[in-house]
């Protein structure tokens, strides 16, 4: 099987994050593989171990992203590709990312592409589905289980806490949800082997793209923190009275009814 994983380097939201002028201060932040992409890497390795083939991890990023790619190689992926846009792009959006990936996947004959459900930094959840549209292959989002038998693929996906069962076929793109698997730790021998695995570096030029082709379609107008949560109100008394009070509050105070 020809397996691809889309991987993004993100800051670690479990570590301290400082915000300066509405922007995340990258200096102090810790960077990791987007946690949902870790599920994708793990599942890709499992699929390869079961069906044979090769796992290639792809990221669009900068020189620093090599660390996260090497980590995926240490977990067991076979090859990595870094599409380095450091010198070419100031800003991009999901359109930019998909456009670049579309060019990258041209002629690749991927059997399956695994991505994270969302990236925890911008959390758009768009890259996977939009790429599948561009490549004209089916996609299933937020999967929690997958099994492949020949061309047929059985999937379970998380739909707001319920499970939906889907049957589809290869080639296919899926986005991975928590619960799909328990990503392994990269072992020491894995880390040492990763050094010798191929890591290809591409630039826009290599994909026959120029800056104009991938110019973002959206603009960030403003970034702000959500308002501080105000203390809630606890109603008391008989249930009937509480319900009446709640309805009246919703109507008169919150004005949502």
């Amino acid at each position: 099987m020809n397996i691809y994983v889309l991987l993004k380097r993100t800051f670690d939201t479990e570590e301290k994050i400082a915000i300066n002028d509405g922007r995340i201060d990258e200096e102090g932040a810790e960077f990791i593989i987007n946690p949902y992409d870790e599920y994708a890497v793990e599942e890709a390795i499992n699929l390869r171990d079961e069906h044979g083939g090769e796992v290639t991890v792809v990221t669009i990023g900068e020189e620093e992203s090599e660390k996260q790619l090497r980590t995926a190689l240490a977990m067991g992926a076979d090859k990595a590709v870094l599409i380095n846009t450091e010198d070419d792009l100031e800003d991009g959006d999901q359109f930019t990312t998909v456009k670049i990936l579309e060019a990258f996947f041209e002629g690749k004959e991927a059997d399956i592409i695994l991505a994270g459900n969302v990236a925890i930094d911008e959390a758009s959840g768009q890259v996977g589905p939009r790429l599948a549209e561009r490549l004209d292959i089916p996609y299933v989002t937020t999967i929690t289980s997958i099994s492949v038998d020949g061309e047929t693929v059985q999937i379970e996906r998380d739909v707001e806490g319920d499970v939906e069962k889907v049957e589809t076929s290869l080639p296919l793109l899926v986005t991975c949800q928590q619960g799909l698997n328990e990503p392994r730790y990269p072992s020491l021998p894995g880390i040492m082997k990763a050094k010798k695995k191929p890591l290809e570096e591409l630039e826009l030029d290599d994909l026959d793209l120029d800056e104009g082709d991938v110019e973002a379609k959206t603009k960030t107008v403003d970034i702000f923190l959500p308002p501080e949560k105000e203390a809630g109100k606890v109603l008391e008394g008989e249930i009937d009275d509480q319900v009446k009070e709640l309805v009246s509050l919703l109507r008169n105070e919150a004005k949502v009814l």
């Binding site: 090599e66 660390k67 090497r70 980590t71 240490a74 730790y185 990269p186 072992s187 020491l188 880390i191 040492m192 990763a194 050094k195």
Partner: peptide
């Protein structure tokens, strides 16, 4: 080195 950093990160997560 990258290997040293990766090891530290992995052991920290495991620990």
């Amino acid at each position: 080195t990258k290997e040293q950093e990766m090891t530290r990160k992995m052991v920290r997560d495991f620990a």
